[in-house]
Computed example of a mutant assay.
Amino acid sequence: MLYSGGIVLLVAFPASTPALEGIAQLAFSGLAPLSVFAVVVLVRIRGLGAFGIRRVDAKWLLVAVGFAAACLAVILTFDKIVASLYPNVDDAQGDLRAASEAGLATLLGTIALGGLLTPLGEEVLFRGVFARFLQRWGTWVTVLVSAFIFALWHGINLVFPSAFLVGLCCGWLLCRTGSIWPGVVLHAVYNTSFLIIYSTE
């Protein structure tokens, strides 16, 4: 209901410029899952550790940065191949590109929302809630199904492969560490890198 209401509001009251529309979308993509997570926590009345919010060895945060770099390399290569084969294809990121290119202040706001808030919100929901729920059926189910749900949320478009790849890595890190924080770091580094790349294109 929270997600649906937010989507309706974004569609019914579009921002005045593509850049502001991109910022609004990023704010929604971070705040909506955090709101859903808060509802889940209140309903379940469980400690936050049950949702993967627990300390983790610093080495796993470094592993997460390495995974982010690997994901970035794979997806940039994939995007170049797609662009060469289909030069006019819509990558579904136009508003985010506009927000990243609208000046330093807007770029910093975009990074705060898309590079920090969104990864936190999406990881507590997709890994902290969905993936932790799926862990009763084993690692493969946890990693694959949570990654697919995460990618599907991003839509059937050119973002789907990158979201699925990031979801696979974040799910695997959750299963290995029991913590969402490596996934948050991976997600944050990946998103921030793309936003910076968009700003320089």
Rank of each mutant, 00 (worst) to 15 (best):
Q93M: 08
S100H: 10
G109F: 04
L120G: 08
Y86G: 00
G114F: 01
F67T: 06
W60D: 05
G114Y: 01
T118E: 14
I81F: 07
T118L: 14
L108T: 11
F126I: 07
E123N: 09
A131E: 10
V74D: 00
A99Q: 04
R132V: 12
A64T: 08
G114E: 02
V129S: 13
E101P: 13
P87W: 06
F133M: 14
E101F: 12
L116Q: 03
G114A: 03
G66Q: 11
A83K: 12
T77H: 02
V124C: 06
R97E: 07
A99I: 07
T110W: 00
T106V: 15
G94D: 12
S100C: 09
D79Q: 05
V124M: 05
F126G: 11
V124S: 02
A102I: 14
L62N: 05
R127T: 07
L104V: 15
R132L: 13
L85G: 10
A131Q: 14
I75L: 04
L113R: 02
V63I: 12
V124P: 04
F126M: 13
A99R: 01
P119F: 09
W137F: 15
R132K: 15
F67W: 13
P87H: 06
L108Y: 07
A105F: 14
L134D: 08
T106D: 15
F133W: 14
D95H: 11
W60G: 01
G109E: 08
L72T: 06
R136H: 13
R132D: 12
N88T: 10
D79T: 03
T118K: 11
A68L: 01
L107N: 04
L72Y: 02
V129R: 06
V129D: 13
F78D: 00
G128D: 07
P119T: 10
E101I: 13
Q135F: 13
V65S: 03
A98R: 01
S84T: 03
L96P: 02
V82T: 03
R132E: 15
F78Q: 04
N88R: 05
D90S: 03
N88S: 09
A73K: 01
A98Q: 11
R127N: 06
I111S: 00
A102T: 15
P87K: 08
F78G: 00
V63M: 05
